[in-house]
Amino acid sequence: MPTVFVTSATGSVGSALCQQLRALGWGVRATTQNPDSKSAQILKEIGVELVPGDWDDEEALRTGLAGCDKLFLCLLPDLGDFNKVPARAKNIAALAKAAGVKQAVGLTTLGAFAVEEGTKPPAEYAPSPFFTQHFHAKKRVEQALMDGGFDHWTILRPGFFMANFLEPKIHMGYTEIRDNGTWTNSMTETSPLGLVDHVDIAQFAVAAFQKPELLHGRLLAVVSEEPLVQEALDQLAAAIGDGRFIKAKFLSDEECAKVQAEGGWRFFSSETCVRYMSDYTDLGELNELIGGLTAFKEFLEREKEGVKQTYLGQQGG
């Protein structure tokens, strides 16, 4: 059975991927800064081999990569230094290649399309200078895998995480939904919102690992469903179940420009390029690749304890 080295193994995508790979009987290795954390302990219980260390600890990385056949690269962005993460990706790719890894699957962002020749949105809706740097940093992460000398590589570019509506990701700029019953965003009433379930992302990674030729060389936009924003918020309110209404508040181009001028960093609160992200997705192909993509209603039902905890302050029993 193959062995996969998974970065960000304790994150939402990484943990789902570890569970799916272990269910197949595959070996899984990862580094962790805190082997005693609850998330690390859960991975240990399913047979993931954990090496203490971080992404800058070359000795830990070499130990974890030794004997691995495949690499899953998912690195959190550093919005204070756009050079740091691409440098990490290049180093990890080099260490993986030296360890004999043959295949790499990387996770970046759907927004990378917005800075590529041939896929850019209209000039008037280009990303702000700040997010242009962010997206280019993601593309440099991708390039590190493309240039890594692997036999096969695949890049997954996910849309808006369904889990952003829940703890703990809701604190990454979305607490307005919980606290005010509104979501101020840069979409429009008719713009599809490309939602993605982190479990689906893991399934696409597994599909690529199982059949390396299938998605070799692909920059694959990954979403699970594309409802309108208000439709998604209505489904969330229904799942909370206390009679509340959550209203979508759409910013005009001028309002988005004002937020950017004031130094706003929240992607869905100021970047008009998100209105065009559905141009890069193909739900038909995605369904053919793994089948049974998760609808937002299904996600909310599966994560109903998280919904209660996030919006009603109730712990699961």
Rank of each mutant, 00 (worst) to 15 (best):
L21W: 07
T281E: 10
E262A: 12
L293F: 13
I42S: 08
E301G: 00
T3A: 11
A208M: 08
F245C: 12
Q203E: 14
A98T: 15
A112C: 15
A257T: 00
Q309F: 15
A93R: 02
G111Q: 13
L156M: 12
L286W: 08
A238S: 11
P212L: 03
T3G: 05
R88H: 02
S269E: 12
R178N: 10
P121G: 14
F130Q: 00
M146A: 09
Q210L: 11
L293S: 07
F267C: 07
A16P: 11
I290F: 12
K247T: 15
T281I: 10
A144D: 00
A163P: 01
G11E: 05
V115C: 09
F130W: 04
G67D: 06
L65Y: 06
Q230N: 09
G316L: 06
I46Y: 02
F267E: 04
G25C: 06
E301T: 14
T7V: 02
D147W: 01
E226H: 15
K169I: 01
A237I: 12
L71D: 02
L50V: 03
G80W: 04
K97I: 09
M162N: 13
V206E: 10
H134V: 12
A99I: 08
Y125M: 08
Y311R: 07
Y125I: 02
K138N: 11
L312M: 10
C273S: 12
K169R: 13
S128N: 05
W183E: 08
M277S: 11
Y174C: 04
D242H: 13
V51Q: 04
P212Q: 04
V28T: 07
A40F: 02
L166H: 05
F268H: 14
Q260E: 00
F150G: 02
P129V: 05
K38E: 11
L166Y: 06
A261V: 00
T108E: 08
G64Q: 01
A248M: 08
Y280F: 14
G263D: 01
A112R: 13
G291S: 15
A60V: 00
P192L: 02
E117F: 08
K44C: 11
R22T: 09
V229G: 06
S224M: 05
K139S: 10
T188V: 04
L215N: 07
S12Q: 14
K211M: 06
R275V: 03
A123Y: 07
W153Y: 13
L95G: 01
P122D: 11
A221T: 15
E254Q: 15
L24C: 10
E298G: 09
K169G: 04
H171S: 14
G53P: 07
K308Q: 14
E254N: 13
K90Q: 00
R266I: 13
I170T: 06
Q260F: 00
Q33K: 04
A89Q: 01
V259Y: 00
V229A: 13
S252L: 04
D147C: 00
A112F: 09
E213Q: 08
F204K: 15
E59I: 10
T154F: 06
A96N: 03
A30D: 05
H136Q: 15
N180G: 05
A295Q: 11
L195I: 13
G27Q: 10
A87E: 00
A137V: 03
A221V: 12
H216K: 05
A144P: 00
P212W: 02
A23D: 15
S269W: 02
